[in-house]
Design a protein around this nucleic acid. Structure first.
Lengths: 347, 347
DNA sequence: CGTTAGCACTCTATTACCATGAGTGCTAAA
DNA sequence: TTTAGCACTCATGGTAATAGAGTGCTAACG
């Protein structure tokens, strides 16, 4: 069965109404709302068709209709008319972005902005290790043979780590090692750092002193895979408590647990990273239980044409896609710009 | 009216039972439980006395009794018999603490441990600025005249900040400035850093070059009050969703909002910082609305006999104080030890 | 005088029941 | 193809009845 224009129009009207009101939409209301001069009975016929196609459903016999995931999908893919954002808002966003120097802070603020503007949950993943490169390293001796390693990556992010090597090093040894690493590894991807270091050492061959070697071994250790996990920043979790569809205690709890757990959500976000433009998971489409009553709207952000991560919002499936989608889109673009601007042109 | 021994004993039994079961305790149940060979009628008489003294209350005429805040207070202050922790658990905790190098990570782990062990919310405040001292500073030039400032404090914490000074500086100028600051300001409290810097500059007098002056001005800016706010780490917020007394959506929401807001909670924690040993706020005692259904159990942690911050747990007023109190106490001690161990004996 | 049994009373929680109203599907007429 | 009419379904909200838990009070008991 194919979908007539009228049916599409009515589906659109129904979903818009449902998004506004949050309650099953009946035939009479829809007849009034839609503007086509049709009687409720006619609408009912169309609704029966839509239901047969799995685009709408009714919670029980004597309630109106509610969009299904499939219905939302069609709505978003081909029926939706997005509302462009006001210039003013974009400017405000940009001002916020520009005023922040620290990239970490920038990501956090972005997440908070998304949460505040949508009144849902905002989220921004931290830059992926595969995409960022070594820029600068510094060793700072601490007490008791412990060493503070400061690693600056090319997204201007600063990573600190304290290590405790097996044997002590003198400040000058450390300085030497840092110089060596800075000279030879700049621009290498973090993920290949370890291998690169080994190569370098081999190439340097016997010339490197034994001491030097052991400093290198130490440095090598800290590039290990476990050192920086993938992670993300969440904001505005409380906002979800305002939605009636999430008033179920059990559901809400599972959702919050999923946020705290992080692992599954990271996995889900990883899938979004490849997509062009705004990516949307509606309800169960995410394939992840706790998110069933929610939708996820994401978009990648990039620097220098490398996709560093994704950002987006999580909210109830019944959300104002017409506003959320452009907002996420713009925010992604602005964040990319802001990061680009801070990008170092080496030396 | 004074409180007889028997009345105290019964109050204790009542509260213990209430903490276990979570429901108003009736006279019959208490008569059975308490082990004194008394009839329910007698118990009722005692209960009437306790009620008159404001130690217990009944939700309605035909329900049992429930402890009031005043009742809990008496219970905790003079009736409670705490359960000592198992050696094994303490050892486990200590192993966790010892294996972590990074202080920031240490605090986060502590918070998570508290949350996991109590199945409530764990919290650890970050070290107070008043109590930590300058140890080392480093300037790293980035692109576009931006400078990465790395500040190491004497609690071995590392603070990063990116600043963009009005005019550019050469690497050697920065090096010079760092040397100067490291030489002259070591050991000064963070809060007095700004003033100290001005003093130093005055003392150095005209001898300092104009360039030097402006580097200093820049450095000065970054010690400003706003740079590092007081903050804390919360863990296990979801745990609160398991408690029936917090099943009220509205209450829970206010509580979560309070966590996200941070400000008021910080203020409350500040008050705990002075107290000796374990400090407890029961329900409304905190004087802070959203926390009314909760209790807060805290304890300071210190390094070198300086109180750096507090840690503790938040949970429903009906909690197992006999286990929670010693746990918080031990955790505070262990954290203090762990931090002390990592403390630097300068150079 | 402290303790206890007995009893009337209060209040909650649960269940059943009914009326209401929104919305449907179907049928037959326009 | 559209629409009016109608019987039907089901969630919702209110009322009444019932059961049960626990109390306070009084009077008897040791």
């Amino acid at each position: 069965m194919e979908l007539t224009d009228r049916a599409q129009f009515l589906l659109k009207a129904l979903i818009e109404r449902y998004i506004d009101e949050g309650q099953p939409v009946g035939s009479r209301a829809l007849a009034r709302e839609a503007g086509l001069n049709l009687s409720p009975a006619t609408i009912r016929n169309v609704m029966a068709d839509l239901e047969e196609m799995g685009l709408v459903a009714s919670p029980h016999t004597s309630a109106g209709r509610v969009p299904t995931v499939k219905g939302y999908r069609l709505f978003i893919d081909s029926l939706l008319t997005v509302k462009p954002l006001e210039r003013e808002l974009i400017q405000d966003l940009w001002d916020d972005f520009e005023s922040l120097e620290d990239p970490q802070e920038l990501l956090e603020t972005t997440s908070q902005l998304l949460a505040r503007l949508t009144r849902m949950v905002g989220l921004v993943t931290l830059p992926r290790r595969q995409q960022i490169s070594f820029q600068h390293i510094e060793f700072l001796p601490l007490s008791q043979g412990r060493i503070l390693v400061i690693l600056v990556t090319d997204d201007q992010e600063v990573h600190n780590r304290i290590i405790r090597p097996d044997k002590p090093f003198t400040p000058s040894q450390l300085q030497q090692a840092a110089n060596y690493l800075n000279a030879h590894l700049q621009g290498r991807r973090l993920t290949e750092l370890r291998a690169a270091l080994i190569d370098e050492l081999k190439a340097a061959g016997e010339r490197a002193s034994g001491e030097m070697m052991s400093v290198m071994e130490m440095a090598q250790g800290m590039f290990g895979a476990e050192s920086m996990d993938e992670d993300f920043v969440l904001s505005g979790q409380v906002n979800l408590m305002g939605f009636s569809e999430l008033s179920d205690h059990q559901r809400l709890r599972m959702l919050f647990e999923a946020f705290e757990e992080k692992r599954d959500l990271i996995h889900l976000l990883d899938q979004c990273i490849g997509a062009e433009g705004v990516q949307i998971y509606i309800g169960e489409e995410s394939g992840y239980g706790p998110f069933e009553p929610c939708s996820l709207v994401t978009r990648a952000y990039e620097v220098d044409d490398r996709v560093l991560g994704v950002l987006g919002v999580i909210g109830p499936t019944r959300m104002h896609y017409d506003k959320i989608i452009p907002l996420v889109d713009i925010t992604g673009k602005l964040l990319s710009c802001a990061l680009n601007q801070k990008l170092s042109s080496p030396e």
